[in-house]
Design a protein around this nucleic acid. Sequence first.
DNA 1: CGGCATCCATTTTGATACTG
DNA 2: CAGTATCAAAATGGATGCCG
Lengths: 231, 231
Amino acid sequence: MEQRTYKQYCATARTLDLIGERWTVLLIRELLTGPKRFSDLQASLRGLGTGLLAARLKHLEHEGLARKVTLPPPARTSAYALTEAGAELAPAILELARWGLKWAMDERREDETFHPGWAVLGLRACFDADAAAGIHVVCEFRVDEEVFHIRVDDGTIEALHGPAQHPDLVITISENAFVELIGQTSTLAEAVTTGAATVSGDRERLSRLARLFRLPSRGVRQAPQPSGQAS
Amino acid sequence: MEQRTYKQYCATARTLDLIGERWTVLLIRELLTGPKRFSDLQASLRGLGTGLLAARLKHLEHEGLARKVTLPPPARTSAYALTEAGAELAPAILELARWGLKWAMDERREDETFHPGWAVLGLRACFDADAAAGIHVVCEFRVDEEVFHIRVDDGTIEALHGPAQHPDLVITISENAFVELIGQTSTLAEAVTTGAATVSGDRERLSRLARLFRLPSRGVRQAPQPSGQAS
DNA sequence: CGGCATCCATTTTGATACTG
DNA sequence: CAGTATCAAAATGGATGCCG
């Protein structure tokens, strides 16, 4: 069971020895929005079987990146949460997300799954800390059954699964409209007029919040020319 | 030959579909310090066979992250270089390196390989852009047979393989001393006195350069307690 | 629900031998 | 030097069954 390593005295390689196996980074991505139960994790990660999920979680525990926690009453079930070391992977994973937003997010494909939490993490990736100086807003998102909230506090942002304590804004929206919103295929205003979304809270505050997120400009990866004769 | 994907409409997952396979990130790490030939890449990546290396390079080319280039005379051999999209992975990879420096770089193990270029990239990961405002220095490192240089230009840094055009500083040092230097087991001054290193250029300038890099404070990943009875 | 064990068909990989 | 070809070992994924 000797896990495979790169055997390089290099910070990048050492990191990949810990989180480079298939599914591991996506598992951490799930935990970045708060503790999750075994079955929630599996539900978010189609294609990952129970055996491999259990093995990956054990690995993360063993390496001190995650730990098993008991959820506070009334839940009382067990769940997995990131340790300090695990949580500090956020900057790296958010950089991967930023790159993906710029270079890899073309049209959604037929067979791709989607979960609102991913988009909420995307918001965190697009957050402009400088623009948020002095701003304090809590916004709750209710996307179909899923509830998330973001808390902006003077240059910092937190994006977690679950309802907010005292939200300044609550956005209730269908998953489809949410996807279009994030992909900038449509605007929140449009979703509201079609009835796909409702907003409660100060509209002025909402528009100030919206200005804190900037989607990177889309780039095009240059595939090699097929080198065939010109048509 | 359908490559395996996560099938998630998520920026992180899409990125990992492109660079998440084994060796791919390390290949990009190698190319971050400049174009490399097939055999150089293989020499840096012990354990990666020619077959897999060829496959990975073909994949990176196909996805527009790298491209084959012909080195300028007198070399004239072919090599691989990053495209714009590939080069923009640098922030993400450097975040992984920063995390590794803090959480994963304990003692060098017996069977681990080391190449000076990795440490030079580590310097880039530790670079403090704010501290470098208004500073311009070019420093060449000659570590055994390998030559690298870094160019600091007012808040930006470049770290490339090969000699510098007009270096302000040249540091010639043995690989062993270089490892100890980077790991902060010893100082450059000590290496100079023992003869393991020589420095040419303005010493004042060197000490100003050294202040631009700050190794993250080491953290300790908390392994789960063995849960055995207390001793 | 949470999680481990087992079996099995496919992929991926690692190591080497071989070719232009 | 720059790859292809080949083959054995390991990792993955899916299904299924078990147990507290």
